[in-house]
Design a binder for these strands. Structure first.
Lengths: 170, 170
DNA sequence: AAGTTTATGTCAGCCTTGTTGACATTCCAA
DNA sequence: TTGGAATGTCAACAAGGCTGACATAAACTT
């Protein structure tokens, strides 16, 4: 275990944000912030008897219309069986449409219906509202730092994916 | 819906980080980063047949030895039945001890055993490793911004709680 | 062309961890 | 002594992870 105030050399003050205590606070900040982050959409989802999994599917289909199930699987990091259950209910409820691929007929291309777009907007508006408020409070430099740390924290594979999600294809 | 490039006045560039696109990226960054954040402990937990719920309990008991069940409930934001199940298994497995309060014998004060400390350290070391690496990569200013935005994003009640978790009591 | 392999999607069933509701116990306080 | 608060237990249920088995389509091999 490293000591709380990095002792060996005297980089103490300069690297204060790397002490175990600072890291612990970062960890707890992530935990509590993530709860805030999901709280507002969760309330809406409840009214529709949906869960976060449905929200995630809607979110990423919206961002990449025509995406395939497999691509969604890679993004979401769940099993196809798990995603399928969610997707099926969204399709049954008329929020998502699944079209068989023309080039490769094994593939299903996913789109939001107008109903799906409506719910997705409701959810993302709620989520953006909190994020916008947090961003406004924190200011642009803090936002830049926020983004930088989050990018460094995520799986490198996802780092490429997450701003660049348009793979539409057909 | 607000337009993507806030149109009405000309604050465009100055508030670019508040566009819907920037907010969407913030949202996705949170999603992917949180997954990275939990990935390493999850691997360890699996070996012990525990889940994240166990990790959270261990984490907060470690941070506030002697905390009561009720206090933990408030921090974790789950039902007592849900927490109880997790706590029971941790107690049965000898990682947590529950002591009846002396002042108020209704209360149970929770402590990690040496076994519990061992697992908690294993988990938090793994989690800190990634966080430290992210902090180091991003640099101190980014870390400050990260903290600022997360604090603005969490429930205000938690803002007070999360750096100041020592309520030990006895 | 026929058979095999690979990619994809579906169905069934299990597990964790969240939820409610009902209820016992134990204790503090009025 | 009665009421309320804190804790714990039992039962039942739901969401959303998981694995295994399997169907179909496409691609590859022979």
């Amino acid at each position: 275990m490293e000591s709380a105030l990095s002792s060996h050399h005297d980089k103490g003050q300069a690297l204060l944000y790397l002490t175990d205590e600072q890291l612990r606070q970062g960890i707890e900040a992530m935990f509590f912030a993530y709860r805030g982050f999901t709280a507002d959409p969760d309330l809406i989802l409840e009214q529709f008897s949906y869960g976060r999994a449905h929200h995630r599917a809607l979110h990423f289909i919206k961002g990449a219309p025509g995406t395939t199930v497999n691509n969604l699987l890679n993004i979401l990091g769940v099993t196809k069986q798990s995603l399928n259950r969610v997707l099926r209910s969204l399709i049954e409820d008329g929020l998502v449409e699944s079209h068989i691929g023309k080039k490769d007929r094994r593939k299903r291309h996913l789109f939001l219906t107008s109903e799906g777009i409506k719910l997705e907007q409701k959810l993302s508006n709620a989520q953006r509202l909190r994020m916008r408020s947090a961003f406004r409070t924190a200011g642009p430099e803090a936002v830049a730092g926020f983004r930088t740390v989050l990018e460094a924290m995520m799986d490198p594979k996802m780092r490429i994916t997450y701003t660049n999600m348009r793979d539409s294809g057909g």
